[in-house]
Design a protein around this nucleic acid. Structure first.
Length: 286
DNA sequence: CTCCTGTCCTGCCGGC
DNA sequence: TGCCGGCAGGACAGGA
């Protein structure tokens, strides 16, 4: 579930509860998610201070200060499909429920709870200096909201690519953070058919696509992300960008672009590409 | 190399 | 009502 806007929203929401605070107690309620929790995670975190929270692709990075014995580290958290990180403010009652797998108790009272029914999430720990070469990070493409993501960069990545453009957008070496929802939405906004071979999308269209990706991600962040089933913000409330979807999960509904002034437009279609649902308007997307 | 499929896991929804 | 198949926001391995 969580794509870039959702992870970004969670990072921002957690920051006031974590930044500048120290891990007082770390509780693991099982030994693994998709991968085992880092060895001796609690002992390695307790007593150390969080200096910053950032995001790379769909990963949340909790920066942890070093001390005289150990260098700075980064706690890497990925929410998978169904993960949540929520903050329980100081003084609010909290009793763990099913699928609460990790609890970070911070000094001054707040608790951060990692909850993940499907357990596709991941928690890893790495020295700060090794993040760029970390197995999960070394091959990541550009951040879509930064200047490094441009028409020319995308053109270079997609040139000669035969896979369809929708599947290519999910490839984290092409661009990071775009998942199944925002891929469909960005292709709709740029008027490009999801079935087009990626290498055949022309320069002018790529320019539109880059703009559409940046736009939809920014608007989704402003809305606090999209809540379909599991996703909630760090304060436990819902995002609302799902109400702003134009095509995603709108199969059989009239296209919002070619339906106007009582004129019957085309119907949003759902197809399956590389095993994942894609939604599009067959008239507006060529 | 690239691509496609299957897999991890639980919960929920629709159909029979 | 109950059971079963299919599907869900992601990422990765393995095989063709």
């Amino acid at each position: 579930m969580p794509e870039l806007p959702e992870v970004e929203t969670v990072c921002r929401g957690l920051e006031p509860f974590m930044r500048g605070k120290t891990f007082q107690r770390v509780i693991l309620r099982r030994k693994d998610l998709r991968v085992p929790f880092p060895k001796n995670l609690a002992e390695r975190l307790e007593g150390r201070k969080v200096t910053n929270i950032s995001r790379r692709a769909k990963y949340m990075l909790v920066h942890i200060a070093g001390n005289k014995n150990i260098g700075a580290d980064i706690l890497i958290v990925h929410l998978g499909m169904s993960g949540r990180m929520t903050a329980i403010p100081k003084g609010r009652d909290y009793t763990p429920v099913k699928h609460d797998h990790m609890i970070l108790e911070m000094t001054d009272g707040p608790k951060i709870v990692f909850h993940d029914p499907r357990r596709f999430g991941m928690v890893m720990l790495t020295p700060e200096g090794q993040i760029e070469t970390h197995k999960s990070f070394a091959h990541l493409g550009p951040e879509p909201l930064e200047a490094g993501f441009s028409k020319s960069v995308l053109d270079k990545k997609l040139k000669d690519k035969k896979a369809n453009i929708k599947t290519a957008l999910l490839d984290q070496t092409v661009v990071v953070g775009v998942g199944n929802i925002y891929a469909s939405e960005a292709l709709f906004d740029s008027g490009i058919s999801p079935a087009r071979p990626a290498g055949n999308v022309e320069e002018g269209e790529l320019e539109d696509l880059v703009r559409a990706i940046k736009n939809v991600l920014r608007r989704a962040i402003k809305a606090g992300g999209s809540s379909l089933k599991d996703y909630k913000k760090a304060d436990g409330t819902l995002g609302y960008f799902q109400h702003g979807f134009k095509v995603y999960d709108r199969e059989c509904q009239p296209c919002p672009r070619c339906t106007k002034n009582g004129k019957k437009g085309h119907i949003i279609q759902k197809i399956v590409q590389s095993g994942r649902a894609t939604y599009f308007c067959p008239r507006c997307q060529k």
